[in-house]
Structure formats: structure tokens, C-alpha cells
Design a protein around this nucleic acid. Sequence first.
DNA 1: CCGACCAAGATTGTCGACACTTTTTAGTTT
DNA 2: AAACTAAAAAGTGTCGACAATCTTGGTCGG
Lengths: 250, 250
Amino acid sequence: MESAKHQPSDTSGLAASARQGEASNAPAGKPARGTQSLADRLFLSLRKDIVEGRIAAGSKISEPELARRFDASRGSLREALMRLESLSLIERKVNVGARVVELTERGLLEIYDVREALEGMACRLAAENRSEEDLVELRQMLNRHEQQEELKKGTAYYQPEGDFDFHFRIVQASHNDLLIDTLCNKLYYRVRMYRYQLGMASPRAHRAFREHSHIIEAIEAGDGELAEILMRRHIRASRSNIENKLSQQN
Amino acid sequence: MESAKHQPSDTSGLAASARQGEASNAPAGKPARGTQSLADRLFLSLRKDIVEGRIAAGSKISEPELARRFDASRGSLREALMRLESLSLIERKVNVGARVVELTERGLLEIYDVREALEGMACRLAAENRSEEDLVELRQMLNRHEQQEELKKGTAYYQPEGDFDFHFRIVQASHNDLLIDTLCNKLYYRVRMYRYQLGMASPRAHRAFREHSHIIEAIEAGDGELAEILMRRHIRASRSNIENKLSQQN
DNA sequence: CCGACCAAGATTGTCGACACTTTTTAGTTT
DNA sequence: AAACTAAAAAGTGTCGACAATCTTGGTCGG
């Protein structure tokens, strides 16, 4: 609930290796550096690896192995694993161990239903509570996306990241910290995991852009009811799109 | 996401003390008993203490002290604390420590908005996906509550627990595991904390009961749209009620 | 008298070691 | 050869100790 302000594409200032700076030879006890614990860095690094598929979905996680790999103690690693569990990125069983979650069609569709509910509400609240600054940022973002669309007309369009920006900003504008935390700090990591690994570059190109545009207009007009309806429809359309795609594959 | 079936009033089979069975003298290493780790039991016990106010909201939590009190190592206690953090029942800062969250008016109202969104969706899904068993259980519950209402006519009615039953069952009937987990295993503990400590015995007596009744009828009829609307209205009414009550106090 | 600096105490983060469980492997029996 | 049993290997849960950090109370200077 704390980090309400938070940029879309990974605030964390850590790159590949979790152990920032000089990597090795830690005699024993060399804790927190820069107001960030070792467990924090392990968590961020592992989260990235899981979301982007470098640690395969469904694979087992060995504590001793990972601890060696990161040159950390099992204790710190364990703390990171527990945080991953609270994001539902891994599952742990007592005395058995941890596994990365599986990606299932059902799981994906369930996420869409939850997003429809929460982001619909976020959109309504954004229309009611948005600050002047929110309005400026939303409009700027839309212009930026429009330019990108002009440029890459016909191609994959709008990287998934563009879509992420959009949803992220609107949720921020709701000014409901619980909602922001639930979506941006919890659910979206799983959403990204599905996007990365099932590689869903939405072919809904400028249709999605037009929908985004209308939603922001409703927010600007302060029409919460309309904003919610449009957002829910937008997400449901995306869900239908995926649903068709999946049923074709099988 | 696992324990989808789960009874309202605390499934956990542990009573006051976290250390079940013989309490003391653990030489070193006497782990898991009954497929439940020590950290698990500490977590459940502390969660209860926080929700019911035996550990005051806003108070600081000392790891060494609690560890002594429960006769456990700091490591196991730490694991329990991290789980509490993921429920947003405590907040931790690096190198500073943990505090029980504060109960604020704003926080309570934020929860209502999220519940309106999620439970509205749960209700819609329940109407669409409910099994025969769900229908039987929902109807039985309603009858049980009606009897209780007849009995205690005029008094506080319907303990908050009755209301909890209701919302719990409907969420279960949605058959969306993510939704069930988010509400029943995460959000509801904070809701209970507010109820216990701000002592909100809803004076909305049989009005609430009638609303519950209509919602279940919509679910029985398979009318998802109506079910969602009624649930959202029900929660919003409850929110308004609290809002008035709070503004009167100040 | 108030604010800044400093030292002692308490608290948190991290680590390595040990106990108990689960899984794997080797051996024996039917 | 397949299946059951038993031992060993690997893995997880728990603990106590140590190092770094934060907090508290006191002291000094303005």
C-alpha cells in the first residue's frame, strides 16, 4: 500500500544479477545496502526471471541450488521465495518445496474476470477523483501512443507495454491505495507472465487505441459510470479475443 | 489458490496457543507436525490476535519479544510476520521493524469500493456458474438466517457472522479461484479486523436480510446481470451506512 | 534553553549448522 | 522380471550466533 507512485516498466534499479556491486566474497553479514535488503534484491531478480520465463513455468525450485547461484544464504533466499508466493508466482508445499506456477487457460480467463471488476471500478473512481496532474499525464500518454501507432502502422502496433502504460496510469488516477496495490503490485505481474510466455501481442491494433481514447475522454468528462462501462467492455473484448485464439489452437 | 473450500469462521484447528500439544522444551529442530509448520501455526495465531485486537492496531511488533513469548526462534516468527505482511495486516520497513496497520476511515472506505467491484463480479459469476450443490447450500443458509432473525427480533440481529456467511458462500459459488482467494483468504481478514475493532454491528437489521434474499433469488434464476447490480447496491448501502455513522462521530 | 553531536543499547538482517521429511536408489524376495 | 523393503541421499524446517543498522539518552556548544 505504500509505493503508490510507481513506474510501469520496473522501478527496480537492479539488472541481471541480484547482487549489485562487487559480487562475491561476503564473509558473513553484509546486510542492507541503499535501504534495500538482500532478500529484496533476490526477490526482484527472481520475479523478473519468472515473469520473463527464464525460470520455466511449472519447474521445481531448489533452495540450495538457487542460494549457491546467487551466493546468498538459504535464509535470505527463503524470504524472497515467500514473497513470490504471496504474488502467486510460485507455490510452496510444506516439506516438499516450491514450484513456479503453471500457466493455464483457466487461470488466464480468471484473471480477466478479476481485472474487469477491479479496473472497471478503478476507472470509475479515476473519473471521480482524478487530479489535474492525472489528466495531463493521461492525455500526454495518449498522444505518445498515437504517434507510435502512426509510425508502426500495420505492424504489431503498440507493444504490450503501451497497453500496460494505459492501464497502469488509470489505476493510479483512482487514488484508491488498496486498488492500486492489488492491481499494480500484485496482479499485473501475473498478467505480464502470461503475456511474455504465451506471447500475446494483441492484434487488436488501433481498435484498442480507439477504445483507450474513449475511456480517457469519459474520465476527462468526469463521467464515472460511462468510464466504468467502457473499461469493462474493453477488457471483455480483450478476453474474448484471447478466448477465440486459444480455442483455435486446440 | 488452493484451499478453495474453506469454512467462514476459521478453519484453523488451533486454539489460543500457537504451539499445539506439549508446549515447551524444544532442544533444537522439532519441525512440522501434522503437515503444518511452526511458522504456519504462528501465522494463524498472530493473525487471530491482530484481527481480534489483542495486538493493538498501530502497535509496534518486537521480534525478540514475540519469539520468546511463543517459544520459537526468530526465524520462524519472521516467516509468520512476512505472511501477515502479505495480508496487509502489518507493515514492515527495512531495518526498522514491523507495525500492525492502523485502522483509518479512508482505509475502510477503500475496502468497500474494492469489495463492491469484486463481490459484484463474484455474484455475477455465481449466477452463471453455480452448481446444484451451491444452490442448496445458499438456500439453507438463508433459511437459517431467517430463523435467527425471527428469534432475535429487535436485538442486534444477525451477528456480523451471519453477514459473513452470506458473502463467503456467494464468493465460493463463483468458482473463480482467483476471486475466491483474493476475497476469502486476503481481503476478508482486514474486513473482520475493522468489524471487530470499530465494532460495527450493522443496524440495518432485516433490511439487509431482504437484500440478501433478493440476491440469492437472482442467482437461482441465473440472472448474472441482476445479481451483480443487487450485490453492488447492497455493499454500497452498507458503505453509506458506515459513512454516515463515522461522520456523526466526528 | 534549544539544537546538534555522540556513545550505548536494542533491534533487524544474514549466515551456517542441525533435525526431521521426502524422495531416490539399491537390494532382496516372490 | 516386477514389486516390496530398506538404506542413503537430497531437501526443507528450525535454531542460535554474529554483523550492520536504527534508536535512545546524555552531553556539549551556541
